[in-house]
Amino acid sequence: MHSTLGAIAHPTRVVGSDGYPFDDFRREYRMSVTKIRLHQPSFRSRVLHAYNSTCAICRLHHSQLLDAAHILPDVHPRGAPVVPNGITLCKLHHAAFDRNLLGIRPDFVVEIRSELLREIDGPMLQHDIKEMNGTQLVLPRERASHPDRAGLEDRYEEFQKAK
């Protein structure tokens, strides 16, 4: 008796070049209601302009790879969508900042979590994260656009607690 465990013959099944049947990946749609922050495009534009479309940490100049990161989030009582509550960060540094893998001290110095500094991984972690430890933020020319130190202090305390 010959058995092919779990194999079912489907003479009409179409198999893709990856070996998976097309019907295993049905397209399904569902309606949803989404809350959109209407101020976000304006906030992004003003923050990127203040920072000359440059990541404040790594100095990347490609605006399509940059975000306007909130120092204090929208839900925070002081999380207003104003330039001093924003920093232009590349997408990698923004994600690291939001997840408290990277902190920014109130004196505008970048700090990387110690466990990441000890970790050995590929070149992206080494060059794009670990080597940023201790670097000074690139600040906007206008002092009024500099990051709010009180907001950075609150956010840095959150970073320290996440360690």
Rank of each mutant, 00 (worst) to 15 (best):
H2P: 04
A7Q: 08
P11A: 06
P11V: 12
P11H: 12
V14T: 13
V14K: 14
V15F: 15
D18F: 03
P21T: 12
D24E: 15
R27V: 07
Y29W: 00
R30A: 05
K35C: 02
K35P: 02
I36S: 06
L38N: 06
Q40T: 03
Q40M: 10
V47Y: 09
V47T: 02
V47C: 04
L48W: 04
A50P: 09
C58V: 07
L60C: 10
H61A: 01
H62D: 09
L65D: 02
L66V: 05
D67N: 12
A68V: 06
A69M: 09
H70G: 04
H70F: 15
H70A: 13
I71Y: 03
P77L: 02
P77M: 02
R78L: 15
G79W: 06
P81V: 07
V82T: 11
V83K: 03
P84S: 13
P84Y: 10
I87Q: 05
L89G: 07
C90P: 06
K91I: 01
A96F: 09
L101D: 11
L102N: 06
P106M: 12
S114A: 14
E115N: 13
R118D: 12
R118E: 13
E119P: 00
M124N: 07
L125M: 06
H127A: 04
D128L: 11
D128F: 11
N133Y: 02
G134F: 08
T135N: 00
Q136S: 09
V138R: 04
L139A: 04
R141E: 00
E142M: 06
A144S: 14
P147A: 10
R149Q: 15
A150F: 12
G151N: 12
D154F: 10
E158L: 15
Q160C: 14
A162K: 14
